[in-house]
Design a binder for these strands. Structure first.
Length: 432
RNA sequence: GGAAGGGUCGCAUAGUGGUCGAGUGCACCUGUCUUGAAAACAGGAGUGCCGGCAACGGUACCGUGGGUUCGAAUCCCACCCCUUCCGCCA
């Protein structure tokens, strides 16, 4: 959430920028609630002081009936005022949480995702001497994907991934963990992009795949209506990305400055309900209820956070380039960056079967918006505490990445050439 | 899932209704002393919210949420987590 003090000082800007993101929030109402809440809080605290003072008078000796009577009066009045305060506070918090993060100045204005700006196009879509096939058309004869039997067991948007496609997935995972752990490579990317951040390698991490309502809500990532699966018998949700169990990892903690930047490369199966996407990308493994993903998550001090974001994008580009996939880099517009985001970048890879660039990567910069509600702080060397900044970014969503590899690397005889960087992790093989 | 024990200010602990708006030890910070350090001695130090330019004041926090009471770390209820044992299980 946003700092109420900031909203007080910039009501106009907050209203406008929320509007740009497609959020209609009643800022005057919020500020009015904030003021009323403040007044009630003062009353509550004054009454508590009365209660405490009254109780103090009864220490030691035996309680006088008059003081007990006084105490009872204070108690009932306090109960009333507290109830009022809680009601108001709930409204206030809901409205405050409804305010999205402010987009940075370089985020393009837009009303739909169609207004995302193509910042650059890298690589040439491959030319085929034949009509390129969809990944599912190639995968079927090679017996790499079985969706029919998966549907029998779990319904639509599930798959059995088989054989060499499994080997390919594990090869990509090894490649990513190796790459993000390479300090020299990171130093090179940092230098090339003129960034002021450390070259500290990313620590691989396997997070829980479920989390409770309270931290999930605080992360501003819980989307109960469209995305997130809820377990019926427990207060648990299936994570829709490793990001969700990673950004909540330091919930309610104050961390020493020496720990920063905290860089993780997380691997998790991700679960999404995909409500409202009926018929969309129904074939293949492009849009699934369950998919595996490697996700970067970085906690940093505020002054390095934007460069951490840019580093994540640089890493994404490097990874995609290494696999030889043609892509476009999109500067996401205000409507598409997402509620907790201050800035967002997408990478869309070329899918020859569809003849389109499709989203495979996202990089999100949240400033302190996530950390404020998650209460994740840094204790500076000076002793003061400050909210951290959070960044997350896809390393590879494995289903979509493999779909892209299959389509871009298809041969005339329906086989798939393995990208050179993955071959060491594929027993030296060059083809599926 | 069953049984027992436990969760206190970084760590370790004290604390079973008012003197705990939380004591002590260790670690930490600042002084005094010392060439410097150590030791000793003295002092300080948590997180949030509200008010204040600030010094500071108020308030809340003893796993979480409710309840009892004039008053709760302490009593009651529910839940979470940890430890040990049993059961089940990769």
């Amino acid at each position: 959430m946003l700092d109420i003090q900031f909203i007080r000082e910039n009501p106009q800007a907050v209203a406008e920028k929320s509007q740009q993101k497609g959020y209609n929030v009643d800022i005057p109402k919020l500020l009015q609630l904030a003021d009323e809440r403040k007044g009630l809080l003062a009353s509550v605290e004054a009454l508590r002081k009365q209660r405490n003072d009254n109780a103090d008078k009864m220490k030691g000796g035996k309680p006088e009936p008059e003081l007990i009577h006084q105490g009872k009066l204070i108690k009932s009045e306090l109960a009333q005022v507290e109830a009022q305060f809680e009601g108001l506070d709930k409204q206030y918090r809901e409205l405050l949480k409804a305010v999205p993060n402010m987009p940075l100045d370089d985020v393009p204005l837009g009303v739909t995702e169609d207004e995302n700006v193509v910042a650059k196009t890298v690589g040439e879509p491959p030319h085929f001497e034949f009509a390129p096939k969809h990944h599912w058309e190639l995968a079927e004869p090679l017996d790499l994907i079985d969706k029919e039997r998966a549907a029998k067991i779990a319904g639509s948007r599930f798959a059995y991934i088989k054989g060499d496609l499994v080997r390919l997935q594990f090869a990509i995972m090894q490649f990513v963990i190796q790459t993000l752990g390479d300090e020299q490579l990171l130093a090179k990317l940092i230098q090339e992009n003129n960034l002021q951040v450390s070259a500290k390698p990313f620590t691989p991490i396997l997070p829980p795949a479920m989390l409770r309502t309270e931290p999930y809500t605080a992360s501003a990532r819980l989307n109960a209506e469209e995305v997130t699966y809820k377990l019926a018998d427990d207060d648990l949700w299936l994570n829709a990305s490793a990001e969700h169990t990673l950004c909540t990892m330091y919930w309610n903690e104050v961390l020493p400055e020496d720990m920063f930047p905290i860089r993780y490369i997380g691997y998790s199966t991700s679960f999404r309900r995909e409500a409202g996407t009926y018929g969309k990308d129904a074939e293949g493994i492009f849009r699934m209820h369950q998919f595996d993903k490697l996700e970067m998550e970085v906690f940093s001090t505020p002054e390095t956070a934007l460069d951490e974001h840019k580093l994540q994008v640089a890493i994404q580009e490097y990874l995609v380039q290494q696999l030889g996939l043609p892509y476009q880099l999109l500067q996401k517009c205000t409507a598409d960056i997402g509620k907790p985001n201050a800035r967002g970048v997408d990478i869309n890879c070329w899918f020859p079967g569809q003849g389109k660039y499709r989203e495979t990567h996202t990089a999100d910069y949240m400033t302190d918006y996530q950390a404020r509600d998650l209460k994740i702080r840094v204790r500076r060397h000076s002793g003061v505490t400050e909210l951290v900044h959070t960044n997350d970014a896809t390393a590879f969503a494995l289903g979509r990445t493999m779909a892209a590899i299959i389509e871009n690397n298809q041969t005339a005889d329906g086989r798939i050439t393995i990208p050179a960087v993955l071959r060491p992790y594929m027993f030296g093989r060059a083809e599926i």
